[in-house]
């Protein structure tokens, strides 16, 4: 039983597609109905996806090279950082979250602390100047009420 990646992904696709079909079945019919309706196309597409996934499970490709355990950890850290960035960009303004997140991402790519700090500060200030004054985008630099 080698070649697990394709099989697991295929299985996940089948599960998602089944949920998708179940949810498509629930779509309310409109009084403005046409011969095809709202349900048919989504159900059709999800069914094709299931067929493809079954082929993937039956005839999987060779296993890709997955990263080592500690690299997986650093990928998860980066995902968490980016999610955090999505939540903090509005309340905390541009400069602070950008400096922290881009510095931390830089550290994940190449673990040199001094370079990462410099990259974070430089990108945060440089991009802010670029966006605010050259491209004229409406960005807030700091949390409200600081200045």
């Amino acid at each position: 039983m080698g070649r697990l990646s394709d099989r697991i992904f295929g299985l996940a696709v089948i599960l998602v597609a089944l949920v998708y079909i179940a949810s498509a079945m629930q779509i309310q019919a409109s009084f403005l109905s046409d011969p095809v309706g709202s349900k048919a196309f989504p159900i059709l597409i999800a069914s094709v996806a299931i067929i493809c996934a079954v082929v993937m499970i039956l005839r999987p490709d060779e296993e890709p090279e997955w990263p080592m355990a500690w690299t997986v950890v650093s990928i998860f850290i980066s995902i968490a950082l980016l999610v955090g960035y999505a939540y903090t960009l509005k309340p905390l303004g541009f400069l602070i979250p950008t400096a922290i997140v881009s510095g931390a991402l830089s550290y994940q790519i190449n673990p040199k602390p001094r370079f990462a700090v410099a990259a974070g500060l430089g990108l945060s200030i440089g991009l802010f100047v670029l966006f605010k004054y050259v491209l004229d985008l409406g960005l807030v630099p700091f949390p409200k009420g600081w200045f």
Partner: peptide, 18 residues
Amino acid sequence: PALLLPGVTMVSFVGIYS
């Protein structure tokens, strides 16, 4: 890359956000 990729990511985020 340790400078480039964080930069690309931040530009992408700000683009979508604005």
